[in-house]
Amino acid sequence: MMAGAKNRSVLAAYAVAYIVFLYLPVVLLPLFSFNQSITPSFPLTGFTTDWYLALADEPEMHNALINSLKVAATTSVFATLLGACAARAFTRYKFRAKPAAEGIIMTPLFLPEILIGLSMLVVILWLGFELSLVTVVMGHVLVCLPYCVTVLISSFDGFDVTLEEASTDLGEGALGTLWRVILPIVMPGLISSLIVSFTISLDEFVLAFFLSGDEATLPVYIWGQLRFAAKLPIVMALGSLMLVASIGLLIISEIVRRRGERRLKPSGMDTP
């Protein structure tokens, strides 16, 4: 209906080319991480897993990994809790300040990260706090919040208020309703929000760079290693593992979200 057969195949070819463009850099890191040569260029010189094995002897990297996991786990919990408050408020209640509140919470998405990072840095140092993983978490919660709210709103949107009312009518208290009615329904959304914010925090560089002080996270560690050409293969191996982790986490969160949506909307309605 929309276009002739020829136009359609041109469009499809364009779409495929676009996907290749999008994935090109994502494929390069893993490819060269298994290559023997220290410089990433063709022809490949031979298959090796040495660079991955060498990761085991990088204690600095291990510290950074542990730091990143701590930060990401803490960030995901706080961002999801705050996000759940916002999403519930926006989907369940009507109030005058709603558009403004939504706009403010979404703002970090539209600002250059360097501006967010430096502004926080100024205030933190003025107040006399030390930079640490805590300050990184504070920044990460801020930038993860818009994503959590978006994920949670789409999950809470399908929530049927009558279920809540029915539960109250049947004698459940507020806590019982929350535990036995609301939580099971919104659980997929919450899990998906936890995973999404965990992934963003794990990969986030600019804020961590400005706010981490002496305690490097993984991306900050990688940034530091980029100065040494000899470390590039190890960095590529680490980077490949991070790519796999991010994509794996995203796919898990998609599956959880889809399953939750299907349970809420058995008619199979499309949600873009």
Binding site: V26, P219, M242, L243
Partner: peptide
């Protein structure tokens, strides 16, 4: 999917 991978990487 590519967007979810680290920007730095």
């Amino acid at each position: 999917v590519p967007f979810w991978t680290s920007y730095l990487l």
